[in-house]
Simulated assay, not measured.
Amino acid sequence: MLVGYARVSSNEQNLNLQLDALETAGCTKIFSDKLSGTQKNRPGLENALSHLRTGDTLVLWKLDRLGRSVKGLIELVETLQVDEINFYSITDGINTSTPAGRFFFHVMASLAQMERELLVERTKAGLAAAKERGRVGGRKRIMTPSKLEAAKKLLREGMPPKDVAQNLGVSVPTLYRWCPAASKEN
C-alpha cells in the first residue's frame, strides 16, 4: 500500500499540488498537516506512520515536507527500514525500495554521523582551549568577590538581607547562597 503525506507550513498555504501528486503516484491513503516542519507534534504524520505496515511505502511530494533537519529525516527513514517500510520522494526521485535509494540513505546517514562526531570533537577542542586561557564554562558569576565583601560588611552593620540584595543587584536567594549567615539573621 502507498501511504501519502503532505505538509504546508501555515493555514494560508494550499496542499493541492502535493495532494494531486500523491494521488497520481497511486496513494490509497493520504494524510496532511498545516503546520511548520519544526513542530514535533504532527498529527497527520503520526496518522500516516500508524497506517504503515511491512512492505508499505510512505510517499512524499518532496523530502523537505517530512522535516527540516537531515538528522531527523534520516532517523525516520532508518526507523521505517527497520520495520521493512519503504520511502519514496516524488520530486527528489528517491525510493528506498531500490538499491540506489537505499544507498543514498546510507550515504546520508554516514555524513550525518560524521558531522555529529566532528561537532563533538570541535566542541571538546574549543572547551579545552578556553580552559587553557583560564575561562570556565557557564554564565559569569553575579556575586563577584567585591560584591561578596560588600554584602558581608552591610550585613554585619545590620542592614536587612532584602536591602543588601537590592543594593548589590542580586536576588535574596543568591545572597543567601553566598552568605548563608544572612538567612539566619532574617
Rank of each mutant, 00 (worst) to 15 (best):
R139G: 09
G134R: 13
T174W: 02
P180R: 06
V107N: 15
I30N: 13
G138K: 05
E185H: 03
R7P: 11
N41L: 06
R139Y: 06
L63Q: 13
L148K: 04
Q18S: 08
P99I: 00
K40P: 00
P43A: 10
R116E: 15
V8D: 00
G67Q: 04
M1F: 03
D56L: 07
A48R: 04
D20Y: 07
K162L: 06
L49R: 04
M114Y: 15
F104Y: 14
D33G: 11
S32W: 05
M1I: 00
A109C: 06
C27E: 11
A48W: 03
L2P: 06
N47I: 00
T123L: 07
G72T: 01
L15V: 07
L168C: 10
Y88M: 08
S36V: 03
E185R: 10
A25D: 13
R53C: 05
P160I: 02
A182S: 15
V170H: 07
F87N: 11
K147F: 09
N11K: 15
N86F: 12
G93R: 12
S110G: 15
L60Y: 12
W178K: 00
L2H: 13
P99V: 03
Q81Y: 00
S10G: 01
V59D: 10
T28M: 04
V59N: 15
N167L: 01
S97T: 07
F105D: 13
L45Q: 03
K153M: 04
L2K: 15
G44P: 00
G101V: 02
E115K: 10
S10N: 05
G158V: 03
S10R: 12
L175K: 02
L15Y: 01
P43R: 02
R68C: 08
Q39P: 00
L111G: 05
I85K: 14
R139C: 07
P145C: 09
T54D: 14
S36H: 06
R42N: 02
Q166V: 00
G37T: 07
Q18D: 00
K131M: 03
E157A: 12
V77Y: 12
D64E: 12
K34A: 01
I90N: 14
K153F: 05
V59P: 14
F104N: 14
T98F: 09
A48M: 06
T144N: 07
E149K: 07
Q18P: 11
L49M: 08
Y88G: 02
K131H: 12
A48S: 07
V70P: 00
M143G: 09
E149F: 08
A21H: 05
M114W: 15
E75L: 11
L66C: 09
L127Y: 09
D83N: 14
T79S: 13
S97H: 14
T57I: 11
S32M: 04
E121T: 09
R116N: 09
K62P: 14
E149N: 08
R122I: 01
M108D: 09
K124N: 11
R135C: 08
L22S: 09
K140I: 03
V136P: 08
L175R: 05
D163P: 02
V70R: 08
G26S: 09
A100P: 00
I90P: 15
T57A: 11
T144I: 03
S146W: 02
I94D: 10
L63E: 10
N95K: 14
G134I: 04
R156F: 05
N11D: 04
V107M: 15
A25E: 15
V59A: 13
L80V: 06
L35I: 10
G26P: 13
